[in-house]
Design a protein around this nucleic acid. Sequence first.
DNA 1: CGCTTACATGAACACACGTTCATATATCGT
DNA 2: ACGATATATGAACGTGTGTTCATGTAAGCG
Lengths: 96, 96
Amino acid sequence: MKSVEAITSLAETFRVLGDPTRIRIAFALSREELCVCDIANLLGVSQSAVSHSLRTLRQMKLVRFRKEGKIAYYALDDDHIAELLEVGFGHVEEKR
Amino acid sequence: MKSVEAITSLAETFRVLGDPTRIRIAFALSREELCVCDIANLLGVSQSAVSHSLRTLRQMKLVRFRKEGKIAYYALDDDHIAELLEVGFGHVEEKR
DNA sequence: CGCTTACATGAACACACGTTCATATATCGT
DNA sequence: ACGATATATGAACGTGTGTTCATGTAAGCG
């Protein structure tokens, strides 16, 4: 039996990925490291909204970033995240 | 590149699993088929809340059910769901 | 038949959430 | 030093969401 905290934390993770903007960001980052403004341009979302979304993703340790001068490069925090996305895609594609 | 619909649908799936009650239900169902009142007792949640949650899970085809007399037995719709939960647990347990 | 049990559902309320807007900080170019 | 660029963040506003409460339907039981 899994602990209550693990289940709560898992729900949190899914909830964070359960937003169109955030999952699009995660999916973009699964292909390559990107800076904030590139993400914003790529998705057609305001820089502010991207920053807020990245903050949420960061808090759940789904993404990490490194700062190079004034530019912040974001990437998925580890391979589990990409795996989670792929298993998820497997599900939605089967159901279509 | 994944289609916009696939990403939207994936976000929906994660959103639905991103609720404590619903993910607890999904986790319980990953072990065995259960009827509504058993789920309610198991989680300590009202029957009404469980029914509403199951409806949401059903709409995303995450669970299926069969009716036997007046009792409705619910189960995960397919093995992908359990896999999704396990990959998710792998992530949260690594991050702790 | 009533009565109980199992489940579903609509309305409503309180709360959470994502975006925008305004603004702050820090770095780069000139 | 000054303006432009890159990013972060707080407040606020509209919207979405989960629960409860009340009620409905349908099956089993005496």
